[in-house]
């Protein structure tokens, strides 16, 4: 009789102990899961944002994108992180504005096995340059040592429209050589009244990038 009662007491004491232990294990697992989700998803989000170059304050004109605020301390944290990672030095707002295109006017990625025509006008600016770069910001070696054009070198027609041909093989006129792989076109406007103030630019004011044919 006495022994049985004692046993019953023991079981009653052990029950809450086991429940508490199970509860603690559950809480530990939940904490580990929360930390793992937090660190994993949070850092993955940062990596994607920085790698994709998705900063705020972008000014898009046709295929061209500029980040005017990168040239000032008003740049948003994403843009600042992207600039810090790239190692490049953005143009100051008072110096000029640089537009980058990694796709043609129809949204297809720019690739070195295709021929493109860059046709049109340039917004009001004192000088401009058009440069062909790899996505990492390096110039593409070529025997002609032609890496870009400046506003002084370009031949325009009577209406002020110019054409630059980006192609892997020799072209008549303004030829910008390219090699296999993806590339980007960078249009830098130096001493332009566009800097900072205006964020809306008529697409007709920037050149189009038209794909001709591919190998």
């Amino acid at each position: 009789m006495t022994t049985r009662r004692l046993r019953a007491q023991e079981t009653r004491q052990a029950e809450p102990g086991r429940a508490a232990r199970r509860w603690r294990l559950g809480a530990l697992l939940a904490t580990v899961a929360i930390l793992a989700i937090g660190a994993g998803v949070g850092l993955a989000g940062t990596w994607v944002a920085v790698e994709r170059g998705a900063g705020f304050g972008a000014v898009r004109v046709g295929p061209w994108t500029a980040f005017p605020r990168n040239g000032s301390l008003e740049a948003d944290p994403y843009s600042r992180a992207i600039v810090a990672k790239s190692g490049g030095l953005p143009l100051g707002l008072g110096e000029g504005l640089s537009f980058t295109a990694s796709r043609d006017s129809e949204g297809r990625p720019l690739i070195g096995s295709c021929t493109y025509r860059v046709v049109g006008r340039v917004p009001q600016t004192r000088f401009w340059t058009l440069t062909l770069e790899t996505p990492g910001g390096a110039l593409v070696p070529n025997p002609a040592r032609r890496y870009g054009f400046t506003s002084a070198e370009i031949v325009r027609d009577g209406r002020g429209v110019f054409t630059v041909t980006v192609a892997p093989d020799v072209q008549p006129g303004n030829w910008l050589p390219v090699r296999e792989g993806r590339f980007e076109l960078v249009m830098r406007l130096y001493d332009t009244p566009l800097s900072g103030t205006s964020t809306v630019i008529d697409p007709g004011r920037m050149p189009q990038i038209l794909q001709d044919r591919c190998r």
Binding site: A30, A33, I34, L35, A36, I37, G38, A39, G40, V41, G42, L43, G45, T46, A49, V50, P77, Y78, R80, A81, V83, A84, K85
Partner: peptide, 26 residues
């Protein structure tokens, strides 16, 4: 649901914190 919500909230904080820290930590 609790673990997922708390995890995603923490992820938001980690994301913002790491973006802000990149220029200084790079």
């Amino acid at each position: 649901a609790f673990v997922a919500t708390a995890g995603l909230m923490l992820a938001g904080i980690v994301h913002l914190g790491s973006v802000l820290a990149i220029p200084r930590l790079t």
